[in-house]
Amino acid sequence: MSERLQVLVLDDEPIVGKRLQPALAKVGCDVEVFEAPAEALKRIAEKDFHIVVTDIRMEDIDGIEVLERVLGKRPETKVIMITGYATVEVAREALAKGAFDFIAKPFKPQELRDVIAKAALALGFKGIAEAGVAAEK
């Protein structure tokens, strides 16, 4: 597959997007970063993303709602949840609703890359995992 992995990152902390953008671009993803859930959802409606990374706790619209909206539009999208509280219930709810995986704050860029690589593999993209490993070196 020559198609590049399309990733959307949604977190109301601006620094998260600012740092993840180059971190993921480096491993061959096309990354779009959003701070406001409403704008992110608007963009999701316009464009198909392979992977959506979203914070669970946000003002206005929370991550679970984003998850439902994304899967409702394109069920094969892999949604990775970022959570501040890695509580069992939140994780269970997210997974039950079809999230691919979750990652607890604070996390390192590589930890997210590993999860994305796993998701990419599940989607049939191969380059990401290798690139991730390469970037680590």
Partner: peptide, 22 residues
């Protein structure tokens, strides 16, 4: 507060890691 603390710590982790990497 624990949740609130996670945000700056996460920002620090991400920024420090990327600074180191790049």
């Amino acid at each position: 507060v624990a949740h609130e603390l996670n945000n700056p710590i996460n920002n620090i982790t991400l920024t420090a890691e990327m600074l180191k990497e790049d």
